[in-house]
Computed example of a mutant assay.
Amino acid sequence: MTRITIFPLPGVVLYPGLQLPLHIFEPRYRAMISDALARDRLIGMIQPQRPEEGAPLFSIGCLGRIGDVEALEDGRFNIILEGESRFRIVRELDVTTPFRQVEAELIEENEDEALAPVERASFEREARRFADMQGYAVDWDQVARLDDVSLINGVSQIAPFDPAAKQALLEADGLNARCELLVQLMQFFGRHGEGDEEGVTLQ
């Protein structure tokens, strides 16, 4: 079991091997960053089930290591969080710190996973359609150079889906399952986003 200081943030997920820029301004989370920097530089990103103070947490998040840090004069921080491992909460701890802490187990990932060529091609085709529909400018040559894990997890992390969809992607068991779900979500949000500002939620 691992004790993890957590940063609950709706609509924000982190994946192992990826980076997440964060601007830290609330006093309790400034205290959290200061504490992490003095210890192991680790914090866990996880979504609350509701966007309210003290809301229950989803069961799965991602442990991140603080990389680059910019400490501002007024006490705020700009940091880059580097994803290390997904984790599953066992229980939330009763603590006196202003930030929440949990006891969790780390989830082992299969680092050798890869998509079949037909799956990769199908995904890229759907991603192009979704990007065009949303008006996103994408460097597809750069996308083509990404390995399968970086591609699927990267799109899952930045995709403009609602918190529940982003959580489902994070919890997906394995690369193939995440890729399949991602295609379904792009099709769903692509359809419902046309002419409907409520259809796709930018987080």
Rank of each mutant, 00 (worst) to 15 (best):
A131M: 06
E103S: 07
G135M: 07
D112T: 12
R100V: 01
L115V: 03
D132L: 07
T97C: 02
V118H: 08
P98R: 06
V138F: 04
L106S: 07
Y136M: 14
I107S: 03
Q134L: 12
D141T: 07
N110F: 02
N110G: 07
F123Q: 04
E124N: 12
R100I: 02
A127F: 14
N110W: 01
V143Q: 05
D132A: 13
P117V: 08
V118Q: 08
M133A: 15
Q142R: 15
E126M: 15
E113A: 14
D141I: 05
W140L: 08
T97M: 07
Q101R: 12
L115P: 04
E109F: 00
V118T: 11
L93W: 02
A127Y: 12
A104C: 06
R128S: 10
P98L: 06
L93G: 00
V118G: 01
D139F: 09
V102S: 01
E119T: 05
E105C: 02
D139Q: 10
R128N: 06
E119L: 02
A114Q: 12
M133Y: 05
E126D: 11
V143P: 00
F99V: 02
E109S: 13
Q134K: 10
A116K: 13
E113D: 09
W140V: 14
E105H: 09
R125T: 11
L93Y: 00
V95I: 10
D112A: 14
L93K: 03
R128C: 06
R129V: 07
E113G: 05
A137K: 11
R120I: 06
S122H: 14
V138E: 09
A131R: 02
E111D: 12
G135D: 09
Y136H: 13
L106W: 03
D112G: 08
L115A: 06
F130D: 02
A114R: 15
E109P: 03
E92Q: 13
G135F: 07
Q142G: 08
F123R: 03
R125C: 08
E108Y: 01
E124L: 15
Y136I: 15
T96L: 12
P117H: 13
E103D: 06
A137P: 01
G135L: 06
R120G: 00
Q134G: 09
D112F: 12
A116V: 06
E126S: 11
Q101K: 10
A131G: 14
E92K: 10
M133Q: 15
R128K: 14
Y136P: 00
D94N: 12
Q142E: 12
F123P: 00
P117M: 15
M133S: 14
P98C: 09
T97Q: 13
L106N: 08
L115E: 05
F123D: 00
E113T: 06
A137I: 10
P98A: 11
Q134E: 10
L115D: 04
D94V: 10
E111Y: 03
P117R: 14
R128L: 13
V102N: 00
E109C: 03
W140Q: 11
V102L: 01
R125S: 13
A131N: 05
R125E: 14
S122A: 15
A114D: 07
A131Y: 04
D112N: 09
E108M: 05
R128D: 04
Q101A: 03
D132Y: 06
A121L: 12
E113C: 11
D132F: 05
P98I: 04
E113V: 04
E124S: 08
T96R: 04
L93H: 00
Q101S: 08
W140H: 08
A131D: 04
A116W: 10
Q101V: 01
